[in-house]
Design a protein around this nucleic acid. Sequence first.
DNA 1: CCGCGACGCGAGTATTTGCTCACGTTTCGC
DNA 2: GCGAAACGTGAGCAAATACTCGCGTCGCGG
Lengths: 208, 208
Amino acid sequence: MARQRPVSPRKEPSQRRSRELVDLIVKATTRVLLKHGYEGCTTNRVAEVAGVSIGSVYQYFPNKDALVVRVMERHQEKLLGVMTEHLASLKDASLEEAVKTLVHAMLDAHRIEPKLHRVLREQVPRIGALKALHEQHSAYEPLVTAWLDAHREALPVADPAVATWVLIAAVDGVLGRVLVDRPGWLEQQQLARELERLIVAYLRGART
Amino acid sequence: MARQRPVSPRKEPSQRRSRELVDLIVKATTRVLLKHGYEGCTTNRVAEVAGVSIGSVYQYFPNKDALVVRVMERHQEKLLGVMTEHLASLKDASLEEAVKTLVHAMLDAHRIEPKLHRVLREQVPRIGALKALHEQHSAYEPLVTAWLDAHREALPVADPAVATWVLIAAVDGVLGRVLVDRPGWLEQQQLARELERLIVAYLRGART
DNA sequence: CCGCGACGCGAGTATTTGCTCACGTTTCGC
DNA sequence: GCGAAACGTGAGCAAATACTCGCGTCGCGG
């Protein structure tokens, strides 16, 4: 397994020119990742696509994985943005509304850049530093847990944290497979309805 | 993305000595995969671990991926064996029994060689020939769909195929995350109960 | 027991890939 | 305008890796 290399930036770009260069590099990495997958994402190719020298790449990124990590971070930020935005209105929602909100949040999140999302999910091996980034859910799980906790009187949920975990893993699992096997479904309402049903039933039918 | 290379055996081993050799190679591949992950699974290393020459490896396998595919096939066969064995008794089961059967089947399947399963799931990029193998469910999905179809009077399920797909994707998604983030849960009964609840609720609560 | 094909070997090759480094260019404070 | 620091360059290196090929060995039919 091995491999656990530094991933933090080697040098912070301070002038505008260099900041633009870093941006160029990250965007190029994304494009290469999309077109050639993780294995085909070589540093030289990234430099070429970005139209910069390979030397410049290594001025700001300590190694190849740092590039990929940066791409993941950017994507993750967008995901998290969408999720928190949707989940903000969760507070006083009814069960049906809350579930609808959650499902649509996750669906929307998956619609941001599906192809990139898929590549990151499927092809990027989860090693070392990358692993932490794959903990996608930890950021918004508390929001859901909080809602569940607030409504625990009404819902027979024993452990809100566990329920949240199961729910999110289940929905995310389904979405993951959809992304791979049935990409078209992402746009279909039946999927959303089915997921809503799954969650509502799970929460309503809870005992113990 | 590229890459779509032959994966079928280059030559069939005919004598006993060579069949044992192939077996040795596949076992070695498994060990290397477990210890070093997909990226660290080099052909030379496999040969070394197997205690055979690299030349011998290429006598029966056209390339590196063919090795990995063979390992996946073996694992898959075991999985499928466990699943069908469990699901054989599905026919006249009640809802609760059927669900319990399904959940325990999937749990047992995931317990066969969890570490290998995890490596195959997490680290092996899904490319070309490998992709087909990742369609793990297609083999036993029909069994579940058939059961659902047989009981569709009693259960308000609109489309048994879709329901099966969602169910299996959900459970598999949860198990996948458990394998990675909470390996210990695999042995805990709460997980099984939670999954059973999820499924029963989904099927019972179905409307439309 | 012999001959031939299947088998097994491993040094070596061609290629790729991540990454460095010595040097030229731009930017900025003063 | 000038000096220094930040920036940008790309030829090329060291290492790794998938895979070949020519040769020696084994085993089986006759």
